[in-house]
Nucleic acid binder design. Sequence first.
RNA 1: GCCGAAGUGGUGAAACUGGUAGACACGCACGUUUCAGGGGCGUGUGGGGGUUCCCCCAUGCGGGUUCGAGUCCCGCCUUCGGCACCA
Length: 940
Amino acid sequence: MSEYNHLKIEKSWQDFWEKNKTFSVDNQSDKPKYYVLDMFPYPSGAGLHVGHPMGYIASDIYSRYKRLKGFNVLHPMGFDSFGLPAEQYAIQTGQHPAATTVENISRYIGQLKNLGFSYDWDREIRTSDPDYYRWTQWIFSELFNSWYNVDTGRAEPIATLTGRFEREGNLTVKAVADEDTPLFTAAEWNAWDEEDRYKMTLKYRLTYVAEATVNWCAGLGSVLSNDEVKDGLSERGGFPVEQKLMRQWMMRITAYAQRLLDGLDTVDWTESLKEQQRNWIGKSVGALVDFELEGHTGKIQVFTTRVDTIYGVSFIVLAPEHELVAQITTAGRKEEVEAYIAHTRKRSERDRMADVKTVSGAFTGAYALSPLDQARIPVYIADYVLAGYGTGAVMGVPSGDQRDWNFARHFDLPVIPILDSQKDIDRQADPTKEGKYINSGLINGLGYAEATDKLIGILESSRSGKGKINYRLRDAVFSRQRYWGEPVPVYFKPGKDGAPVPYLLPDDELPLVLPEIDKYLPTETGEPPLGRAAGWGYAGDGTGEKYGYELSTMPGWAGSSWYWYRYMDPRNGSAFASREAIAYWRDVDLYIGGTEHAKGHLLYISFWNKILRDRGYVPEEEPFKKLINQGMIQGRSSFVYRVKRDNYSRPVFVSAGLRDRYEVTALHVDVNIVSNDVLDLEKFKATRKDILGDAPEFILEDGVYKCGSEVEKMSKAKFNVVNPDDIVERYGADTLRLYEMFLGPLEQAKPWNTNGIDGTYRFIRKLWRLFYSESGAWLVKDGTPAPAELRILHKAIRKVEEDIENFSFNTAVSAFMVCVNELSSLKCHNRAVLSDLVVLLSPYAPHLSEELWAALGNEPGSVSVASFPQWDQKYVVDDMFEYPVQINGKVRAAISFALDVPAAEIEKAVLADPAVIKWMDGKPAKKVIVVPGRIVNVVI
RNA sequence: GCCGAAGUGGUGAAACUGGUAGACACGCACGUUUCAGGGGCGUGUGGGGGUUCCCCCAUGCGGGUUCGAGUCCCGCCUUCGGCACCA
């Protein structure tokens, strides 16, 4: 073969790998295990664009590298195939989402296989497959059957809870449970009938039904979780989202807030991602303080992180939605308060967020009494206090908090200094904790820490307050009013009072398969689409009755919150994965995916994993030891410029460099017919009759038409989508793989630009020329490699190894290029050198490497299981000689210099100017850097 | 406002614990190959003086530490991500 033919080479090796199951992996091995996982994709109708495989290429390189290093590598791929787009497509076209999903998946698989990934395709999974979601439903059941024991700090089976109720009631049970759970004794519990006992357990289960304020998105016809809402709009579709009280399935992720935080300290993720999660969980340590109400039996409970400022309180503010507002408002204030509440209700979440500067509120007429000195404190309502955080009530301390200060100024309330170090409080709040307390009764003269401890002690002993940790994290809403998701394995049976009570579908009834329906829209009565499935219900409880199933389905994150375990044992019919498989693979060593999942997926995986661990199914507290976030690939749009003139004259297009001389309209042009910003005019004329008309005129510069460019999101409408299939067709997968890695650091977001790809293509052909001459002659010769050749090779081996170990995939490509450039100029055709080079390159360019490896006389396919070449110290070290020296009379150091330079020459150079540098005797000095002919510097 | 990351040629980017800044690649220029198609090969390419050799200035801005700073310290500026009346 005289020319490198990527089409032929790549196809034949992909077939070979598939036929020989080269990358199939066993759950048993003498080798150490290594698990490399990609975030699995949602198979959208648009297929992959060049940005998507970035992470997959990196993980594949790492997987292949680890195999060469002697690891048993699990590297699977699958599809997160439940989701909204398929359902919306179904609503529009009537096609079953399952059908379009299968089509999309096969397109994805085709595209992925084209890129030569070393996935074990026998382990492929799909979350929408009943054999898979059977186990998602099973995990739901496990959560339903678990409660969180605060004493043991973990989830336990519900039986351990009911056992304690029988013996002790719930007075001594410390559990994470519903707010409204009443206290009861063992005698009371034992006197209840089975239904009442069961209903009581519903308040404790890790998944539960609740009337909750949820993010309702009318545009999508479904509720959304907090991480699916951005700036008051839905992340998908950008529809407005409103707060609505609805009955929903919830998950008690808040029980795990502290453990989720602790876990972050044990994993190797980027600091910025961990910070995002910490912010999202939003832990704040403070106290609850009760304020009695004057002339009223109720109490206002506030949450504060600064109890120490309690003597500075000059007002209390309740959220307008606070339940006490109606009771405490005095007759004279009623009108104003109600008007304010109405005003707040009208404002959307968005308006409220946009307008944070304006101070507003209303006085209720009521007064609260400070628990310490019985000071009379006016009670206000204002929308800067959120009903959903803390207790929905705050104590206003104007001297220490800027919002409180603004509020006090607006309503003419006193600003009381409480620390002697506070400055300028006439002009702004000073939140300092420095100094000693003043105007502060019992804590006068104390410092911050002492004062806080003392106050909490006093409040706790007088039962008017206690220390409290608050989290911003809310329990996760688990219901979606949609069709294309996992059915919740629950049916409802009327209770004594006629109200429906949820019961879990028995294990042996799983999977509860998604029923067929005629349309994918909500029913006329507003029920979710599953309400259309006539007769869908459970009849197996022996009563002869049929009970309706839950009509909402699980959210998108359900199937992806445990999937890495399924890859370990993907066809297991009796467990989500066998104990042996889990014990062998344990956890994911390297996880690669985008940072956009910080508040969703990456929290949920940890949450579910902790439950599975508590219940004894999995061994590790954190499932993903190391996480790398690949940067997003943006599009780079190209533009042509049409000169503005009347509609009837023929269109004129001006090249980008000349556009300033005209008044122009910029139009997107397909980036695939633009190369190095030069437009292919013939293709342009052939494909864009719509904007060109009959006889377009082009004003060129330097004989070509140049396009302008801009970085935007990759999308069809902007004509900037680059399909990897086209690049593979033209340059080959190996070139694309090398090029995508060469673009820059993996973590960095960058616009896609195909301009530089010729460089990597040239590199491959240059490598090819080390094996074959232009006429096709085989050039490789046996024999002992020259030292110069070994030096080049071993430097490359060391560099590539270091770079891959450090996930610096881009710099390794440079190392390949340097190596091949140097070997070419030496005309090196040595078999030993080239053999090692081929293995070295195989993670990046697997097809080419297999081809050349076989051409070198090795067994076909064996480069994939070869060993990573060893580098030899003697060829790669930059040997340094060290000479103690002194400079300008100061005794300093030693000189060291590269081995390349003959020692005599260095000495000559050093001795040439004895006035500057003199040899000194004795003392060991460290080094001086000497470059050929010149002393650079001296170090002690 | 708070938290996090980052600012290096025309472009993408290299630079290990401080040690010849700009590797490698794109682009560009010139040359070459009877190549005239977005082909191959070679040389050059941070800026400014001068053109065998050499000198000066250059890693967002201003200071500092050091024999020596892209790298460390202090103070600014800018960009990008995240959070945001969270009490």
